[in-house]
Design a protein around this nucleic acid. Sequence first.
DNA 1: CTGAAAGCGCTTACAG
DNA 2: CTGAAAGCGCTTACAG
Lengths: 329, 329
Amino acid sequence: MRARIEDVAAAAGVSMKTVSRVLNGESNVREDTRTHVMATIEKLNYRPDPSARRLAGQRSYEIVLAYNNPSRNYLMDVVTGVLAASRSSHYNLVLSPITSPRDIDEIFVHARPEGVVLTPPLTDDPVVVAALKQRRLPYACLSPHDRKARIGAYIDDVAAARDLVLALARLGHRRIGHIRGAKGHGAREWRLSGYKQALTDAGLPYDPALVVDGEFLFESGVKGGRKLLAMKQPPTAIFAANDDTAAGVLRAASELGLRVPCDLSVCGFDDTPVASQILPALTTVRQPITEMARVATLQLIERIRNPKAGTMQPIGYELVQRESVGPAP
Amino acid sequence: MRARIEDVAAAAGVSMKTVSRVLNGESNVREDTRTHVMATIEKLNYRPDPSARRLAGQRSYEIVLAYNNPSRNYLMDVVTGVLAASRSSHYNLVLSPITSPRDIDEIFVHARPEGVVLTPPLTDDPVVVAALKQRRLPYACLSPHDRKARIGAYIDDVAAARDLVLALARLGHRRIGHIRGAKGHGAREWRLSGYKQALTDAGLPYDPALVVDGEFLFESGVKGGRKLLAMKQPPTAIFAANDDTAAGVLRAASELGLRVPCDLSVCGFDDTPVASQILPALTTVRQPITEMARVATLQLIERIRNPKAGTMQPIGYELVQRESVGPAP
DNA sequence: CTGAAAGCGCTTACAG
DNA sequence: CTGAAAGCGCTTACAG
């Protein structure tokens, strides 16, 4: 039989309440009492029953991870990070795929979360955020568009995009195209912004014709790539908003008989598996997604414990140089 | 305030026990009593408190999804399927990454599952399976090596591999190479077996030199591809055990200046994103992973309810013809 | 077919 | 710093 708190109390010669105090790290326990109770817990291999704890404490210890669009790769990394952080703090993770932002209340059908982790683009959905605020539910965000008044984690997308494009400029590229990310994602704006900054830094003019729309998809790259490469003065390099898009550009280039990186340089963003497996392998930016998710969840937990705690944490990124970028032809 | 079972009982003019019976679909409730109680539940928008239910019932309603190796893509699809099935039956999903099969007891640190869903290669790990059996814990498997005495879901890997290789033979290929999957995965054996069957069906000899080892990785494809293509009589087609491996073969072919599919045909297995985004896009097999996970979980739930219920369900696969396969040169 | 009582294993609110 | 009592919201075992 499993040991109960009552058994521990009896074995340690204290009350259940004292054991409960030790368990929950509450103050007002004499140090040697605490030590003794801890030892007894260890000896009996006692683990508190989560259901009893929840019922009596009127708390769920649940953290919801809400998501909709992101790629499976991205999501699984996020799951890993959120799981690590929540477990280390004795919270339970409840997954909540959101079919439609209007159905944000779906979350509460399967959980009574103490806090929510939001992945983009849910982070910037006014309906979702309003619903959470109305319920006064703490939430943390991964790479939200608006970082002020939010807690969570992010990488400096602008700087990363700038670094990438600046590297292109240093290789002699003077006409650099950009295929944008999907609307509603902060990354769409940041990456364009980094692109523009790099042009300025390199003393290159900004030509709106070199910037085409996209949706973070392979198809965006094919379409955007065809459009850019069909220009009278086509770009010699293309910065795609993510790796899937860059893979699409590679396809468009191949259709036109262009060789990468000899005739055209291409870079992506994210360092997904396709980036290293495609030919040529993509120069891109690696985001430590699992770490971001872990840190964001930790911020959430701090805020759950203290409404004034929790911050927006910057996380480092890494430029990954591979084969898809070369000197301007 | 939330309604409690007591409130529903009072409003409906019955005892708590009767409401409980209706809630749990037990028999021995008069039909009109049931209808009336249901209406009252609806009216009060009553939802039973999960913690109280677990505590009183001494049940966890938890299903653990245990995983180690699989790719993030595969896993996220599995998660989606398991989540769908467990929620539809009022079970909760607990994720359990297994660092080492020896630490299978990790599962029980964070959950007291009523059942476990196992993903390959955990499905065939003797330590894991023994631990589950010893605890008399029902478990369902996704594509286990040994389907007998197991419940869950699978696709006919042998037939799928045979179809793929047979298509190659029909295009005139007479020397077809195979790069195998990782040890410990049932798929490693099945795909080889399907490969051999196809050769037999096509009246082609089986040449062991054309079969090289692999681990389901991109690197396996690069290495295996180089080895096969360096043969005195190299194959004109290569069946890689999965898409990542096939992507590696594409890379090896490119290094040697071989063009796919003109000089070499390549096919993979799984239809991961890389399969459609790589150049040339891969001919492969699509497994409905989410559906398999859903069905397997449903089998598990049946078994939880009845130790004799639950079966091993076959799921259909689909051949995806793309650009990486062509007539023999 | 229905119900009154006891109990699941914790925490809370209070007292000392 | 510590404890005795009540209660969280359900289900179980039993009785009728």
